[in-house]
């Protein structure tokens, strides 16, 4: 699988200065990429462009040579797992919102048992988290761990991780790496954390790619 950003320009509506200018990147299966750049340099924007939530002003994004639009985009979204910076799964208990993602037709076959899910929660340091706890009442760190567990169980070919270790201690970071690093995937991560970036196998600096 080859994912390519080719000469991407992008500016948010109403902004005169583009956030991305002539950005290119190629990622292949097995790549674990750390996107580096200052806050506001466009790391999260790259994920949004890739997922089709925003449209590049210029340039194309392709998967195996096919542009990610319409049907190709829908299929791509089904092959990704995304960990946003602040995961919002909505109202309801942890059990309701966690398993809702496995009610989707495309994810049904990946639904873990409650025991297996909790095993991973415990592994990620969520021992005191109860299934009936309201998702909204969880801390940022707890929500981040839930998101990581979701990425693990969804087991998609492309992982998009936005600051995956921002609220974690070093022991937990090691566990995240153990759970998610997989040579059969493309992993794109945006991170300010040197611990994380040194463990990725490629580093891309936004605005001046040095792959």
């Amino acid at each position: 699988m080859t994912l390519s950003f080719s000469n991407i320009d992008f500016a948010y509506p109403g902004q005169a200065t583009p956030i991305l200018r002539n950005f290119s990147l190629t990622a292949e299966t097995g790549d674990i990429i750390a996107l580096q750049g200052a806050s506001g340099s466009g790391k999260t924007t790259l994920f949004r462009l890739l997922l089709g939530f925003e449209k590049p002003t210029n340039g194309t994004i392709t998967l195996d040579g096919k542009e990610l639009v319409n049907e190709e985009l829908f299929q791509f979204r089904n092959r990704t797992a995304w960990l946003p910076q602040d995961l919002d799964l909505g109202e309801g208990s942890l059990e309701e919102v966690f398993f809702y993602l496995f009610d989707f037709k495309n994810n049904k076959h990946k639904k873990p048992s409650k025991e297996k899910a909790y095993e991973i929660f415990e592994f990620l340091g969520l021992k005191d988290t109860q299934w009936n706890t309201g998702f909204r009442s969880l801390s940022t760190g707890q929500r981040q761990r839930i998101g990581i567990a979701l990425c693990y169980f969804l087991d998609k070919e492309v992982l998009l991780l936005d600051e995956p270790t921002s609220a974690l201690d070093e022991a937990s970071k090691e566990k995240v790496k153990e759970l998610l690093f997989d040579k059969n995937k493309i992993i794109l991560s945006a991170s300010h954390d040197p611990w994380w970036t040194t463990r990725c196998n490629k580093i891309v600096k936004i605005n001046s790619p040095v792959v």
Partner: peptide, 19 residues
């Protein structure tokens, strides 16, 4: 962002909008 997260996790439009 919640709707987008659902869409990025393989939801169809109806599934993403269900809640």
């Amino acid at each position: 962002e919640r709707y987008r997260f659902f869409m990025a996790s393989g939801a169809t439009k109806s599934e993403g909008l269900f809640p």
